[in-house]
Design a binder for these strands. Structure first.
Lengths: 243, 243
DNA sequence: TCACAGGACGAACATTGTTCGTAGCAGCGA
DNA sequence: TCGCTGCTACGAACAATGTTCGTCCTGTGA
């Protein structure tokens, strides 16, 4: 339980790699938490989250893996910091509006999804731990504001914020998995899967019948559908008597 | 791309560990796919999904890790088989009923969650790959039947089946993570988190205000809420004009 | 200038998934 | 019954990973 809440309100964290002098650094470098997360972000965007290993991050900094452990508790903490950094790329609405609250909700969910998908593999990491960093907190705060402004009860707002986040992150994870799977085998997968479903033995009449509906929708369509269902359902539940 | 679809319609897969003769087996054992999955299931239930390593499974069978690779493509395939075996423990309704379709839906979601949580760590694995095994297919078939019997359009049924599965599995994953985290540090975590939220700086008025609502609901309550929202939303969307 | 404390880092350890090469068993034809 | 052939169980090893230990350097205060 180190002081993870300290040194948070800095906005100059994202500086990309100040070229101090030259690639040769005979001087002993000064390693910082922020520098480590910077290096991890570079590796993340270049090779994906699975490539964010202690060695890769260290090499990106021009040192060995042992050098990280004086500033970061372990890979877990490093990944948490990385996730929060990604979440920090998202914009949050200035002020919640009572009329446009569902639009704001949709917008925030879209933005979360976008930043997650912009960094391949990070959704899986985000799913692993509950959001605890300052940027995630800021997002939760804003989300709660929108929900309450929409007239939802406190109880429903509290539950809905978790539900929406779970949906957005897990949906991004699935999209990510599917995307990299498609990237691996370049054959167009939905068509093959549809053929497979359609050719199933007759024990599966519904799957055979709905082969197209099961395989054709894009990830975006699925996401939009989920968003419609969730927001509609939350609205209905939140405006009845009490949840 | 091996013949993964072959040898599927066997129901005697679940036999627990026939004690052939004695722990000493001077005879060369006959290793089968089913035997490997059996052993993996034993390790899973004993030590959790993270402990399902090639070595652990092999040791459970009294052999070395290399012996598995003649029957299983790799750890991925082994885990897929394991997930499908777990899904197979779930009961599916005999026939879809037009009146009780939402009850049947809830029941199936509950059952899925139950079997997932009965095997610690398996939800994470189930989340990784889209369901492809015969048991998952049977479940999807049944789910589709219930949704169509409920009067939903084909399009909505196809999307809803994915959405529901995503919610159930990811929610089980979160419950699993939380459970093992609580098991690790035996202090009661929700209370601590609530205190942390309540003591946040005033930049977070909503989180401070809803600290209790955010931390107190149990995993079951969250799950029930999500189910209410999803089924309500699906119902509303499926019975309007067209999705 | 000098001693000290903190940290950068080389090397190593344990654990993982996976592959190679060997050797032994099973089944089959004679 | 005997020998051959092909499949396969499996010991050993390899590469990659997270993490720790001990050493030595370096910046800093007196």
């Amino acid at each position: 339980m180190t002081d993870r809440t300290r040194s948070r309100d800095r906005d100059d964290v994202g500086l990309p790699d100040p070229p101090w002098r030259s690639p040769r650094r005979p001087l002993r470098r000064r390693i910082t938490r922020e520098g480590i997360v910077d290096a991890a972000a570079v590796v993340l965007d270049r090779d994906g989250a699975d490539a964010v290993t202690a060695r890769a991050v260290a090499e990106q900094m021009g040192t060995g893996p042992a050098s990280l452990y004086a500033h970061v508790d372990g890979k877990n903490e490093l990944l948490e910091l990385l996730v929060d950094r990604v979440i920090g790329e998202m914009a949050v609405p200035e002020e919640a509006s009572a009329e446009r609250w569902t639009d704001q909700l949709r917008q925030m969910c879209h933005d979360t999804r976008t930043v997650l998908l912009a960094h391949p593999g990070i959704a899986k990491v985000a799913l692993a731990g509950p959001p605890s960093g300052p940027n995630a907190l800021r997002r939760t705060e804003s989300l709660l504001g929108v929900l309450r402004t929409g007239g939802l009860s406190d109880q429903v707002a509290g539950l809905a914020v978790d539900l929406l986040s779970l949906f957005v992150v897990s949906s991004a994870y699935e999209a990510d998995v599917r995307r990299s799977a498609v990237a691996a085998s370049e054959t167009d997968w939905p068509a093959k899967l549809e053929g497979y479903f359609a050719a199933l033995p007759p024990h599966y009449p519904n799957i055979i019948d709905l082969a197209a509906e099961l395989t054709r929708p894009s990830e975006v369509e699925r996401f939009e559908f989920g968003l419609d269902v969730l927001i509609g359902g939350i609205r209905a539940l939140g405006h009845s008597a009490d949840g």
